[in-house]
Nucleic acid binder design. Sequence first.
DNA 1: CCTGAAGTAGACAGGTCGGTCTATTTTTAA
DNA 2: TTAAAAATAGACCGACCTGTCTACTTCAGG
Lengths: 189, 189
Amino acid sequence: MGRRQDLIDTALRLFYEHGIHAIGINQVLQESGVAKQTLYNHFESKDSLVEAAVEHRDKLFFQWLESRMNSRPAGREALMEMFDAVHDWFNNRVPTLHRFYGCFFINTCGEYSDPEHPVHKRCAAHKSRIFELLKRHALEIYSSETDAEELANALFLLKEGAIVKAHVEGDLDAALKAKAIASRMISPH
Amino acid sequence: MGRRQDLIDTALRLFYEHGIHAIGINQVLQESGVAKQTLYNHFESKDSLVEAAVEHRDKLFFQWLESRMNSRPAGREALMEMFDAVHDWFNNRVPTLHRFYGCFFINTCGEYSDPEHPVHKRCAAHKSRIFELLKRHALEIYSSETDAEELANALFLLKEGAIVKAHVEGDLDAALKAKAIASRMISPH
DNA sequence: CCTGAAGTAGACAGGTCGGTCTATTTTTAA
DNA sequence: TTAAAAATAGACCGACCTGTCTACTTCAGG
């Protein structure tokens, strides 16, 4: 798999669990079994390792969510599947995403609040990609661009809220509650 | 106001802007103009200063939000006012809360992911207090405890989602969009 | 077989970390 | 006025931080 990827995997795991500034380079090296010089051959600084970790998490998470949603018919069912997917994530049933410690991108922005910082920008880009994924499916329901955008936005907010609630308050059913609300929004009764 | 409060104010400001692990004790001391021994007379460790900062933020934020909501009739109007209030917060029109860097409690949980850690617990308690505030007003709308709880939960998720979107993506209108969705939920058309 | 790239271990540098300690000054209250 | 309490500056501790450097090993391709 290559040392570079070993470093990224280990760094991501530690950063996600403990936060970025709480983890030193030496700890990443020790747990990955890679030598220090090797790290600095692949990355010019800790910050650039952080960027690589964020980028990797973006890929991991997006591909996982997209494939979960693709397992259902586009539109309403795929959007509902999103909530089931994050429900599995909250309850540690998705090994690829590691044990649940909230959203890595939200957590990371808490440590890099400057919106111009490359790390913050990458987190914003991730959220933007997710939103576009939702919007794509919302367009299967509403022909109007505006209506689709509004629906995607509502589902996005509910999902982000559920992530926060699950992590901060330890509410492991947050995704299901969000799903119930979302379901009422798509086809009201 | 006393050195103890100076320390808490300065620590909170720095922690909120940069994250907790990124800020050293020495920086808090320098910016507050307090001597090191004085800090350790009032707090037994950095962690206990962190706890005090979280507690202070809890008080600041809750009192601010509650008073904003109390400025409107209980129930629907107060709940709508909540979104206007956080909209002002996002757009830096609430000096008491400092410049907007997302939710301090969410950010802090990203650095203290262990749910048993006292700091994490305090953050959870804050969110719980906010939820109860919403529920109180939701009960003015629905007589049923269950209905009120479901409404409060929905508004809570929308609000948390808006905070995240505003911070990570820099969407300064996130609160207004959340309000529009919430408004449709309370009195559907 | 040889060469060069890649990886290893570990010392090292300069700085910061949280926290303790001493010695001195300022403030407060009896 | 005076004695106790609180705050000060700043040295100091051992540990850890990011990052550099050297010297040695591993290993693949020509």
